[in-house]
Nucleic acid binder design. Structure first.
Length: 294
DNA sequence: TTCCGACAGTGGGGTCGCAAT
DNA sequence: ATTGCGACCCCACTATCGGAA
């Protein structure tokens, strides 16, 4: 088992010592050859049989590749499509054909038994490029020198963001290093609070929505980003607004509804999120601020 | 003494698989 | 057939604690 190196979240670094890759929205996979191909998830789980289309990938024994398995749709990775098959060992042929995966390889910690981890990123990257890995289901995506342009392009293309890597950095297995910085595209939205749920804290999560023609449309639960002080403030605002029935236009699924305390939807909060899901819910939601209302 | 980084804990969307109802 | 629950995947963020500065 070879735990992959992890990136630290942060703002886009600048300077000639950095190189920039697009951030691919999929699952992290390490490939080892000893001598047969073995694919490992970040946790170390053997996932080789989940991605049979990668079985043709062949390299010398003692080689370790690091990359991301994605499902491409219109040229962009779709995590939601990948989710439909990523838990399945030996997926049915029809499923694998409908949702083919691509392994995007971005690092080479070992080659034929030679430890390349101590080499600077740029040299490992050059060795990786020399392998000429390109096939129907794998590729080595490009790296760029212009950080701001790469970041802007990632947003325009609807990608997840960029990962900045220090040219001189070593590969540190299993470590969350400051030499790799992930800069994610994110959005914010103002939403109405239609209820809340207790949890381990007094206020576990907010049930939020947006006002549309059909009424208050549920956008998901927001439990992240709430400090102890904000929790108290929100409870003080919400408890006087209690009402017996849900203010949402549609009945919420049981797993969202469970334990809910409904309120008049009068409190507006700003939430940050990664993307909207196909179901119209917030992905990676967290509270940014409670908006003052006159 | 103060500050920072690592870690545990709490929250999210979503899928699958299995058990209970 | 529906619901509940945990295990995995992807996470963000807060609070805490010990060691570095």
């Amino acid at each position: 088992m070879f735990p992959p190196m992890l990136a630290t979240p942060g703002p886009l670094p600048s300077g000639p010592e950095w190189v920039f890759e697009l951030k691919w929205d999929g699952v992290r996979v390490v490939a080892t050859f000893d001598p047969g191909l073995r694919l490992s998830a970040r946790s170390g789980t053997n996932v080789t049989s989940r991605y049979p289309e990668l079985s043709g990938l062949s390299l010398p024994p003692g080689t370790v590749l690091d990359g991301e398995v994605v499902v491409l749709a219109d040229g962009r990775p779709s995590f939601e499509l990948l989710a439909e098959r990523m838990h399945r060992d030996r997926p049915p042929a029809a499923l694998a054909a409908r949702l083919p995966v691509t392994y995007l390889i971005f690092d080479l910690p070992y080659l034929a038994g030679e430890n390349l981890c101590e080499l600077p990123y740029e040299e490992r990257r050059a060795r990786l490029d020399e392998l000429g890995l390109a096939g129907p289901h794998w590729a080595v995506p490009p790296a760029f020198d212009d950080g701001p342009a790469t970041y802007t392009a990632s947003a325009q293309l609807g990608l997840e963001g960029v990962v900045a890597k220090r040219r001189t950095s070593q590969y540190r297995p299993g470590l969350r290093s400051a030499d790799w910085v992930k800069c994610k595209n994110e959005s914010t939205m103002d939403v109405l609070v239609g209820g809340w749920r207790p949890g381990a804290r007094r206020l576990g999560a907010l049930l939020v929505g947006t006002e549309e023609e059909e009424g208050l449309v549920f956008r998901g639960r927001v439990g992240g980003g709430i400090s102890a002080a904000t929790e108290e403030r929100l409870l003080g605002l919400l408890e006087p607004l209690a009402r017996p029935t849900s203010p949402f236009a549609e009945a919420l699924p049981p797993e969202d509804r469970r334990g809910a305390r409904w309120v008049e939807p009068l409190i507006v909060v700003e939430v940050a999120y990664g993307q909207l899901t196909n179901a119209g819910r917030l992905r990676f939601p967290r509270l940014r601020k409670v908006l003052d209302h006159e």
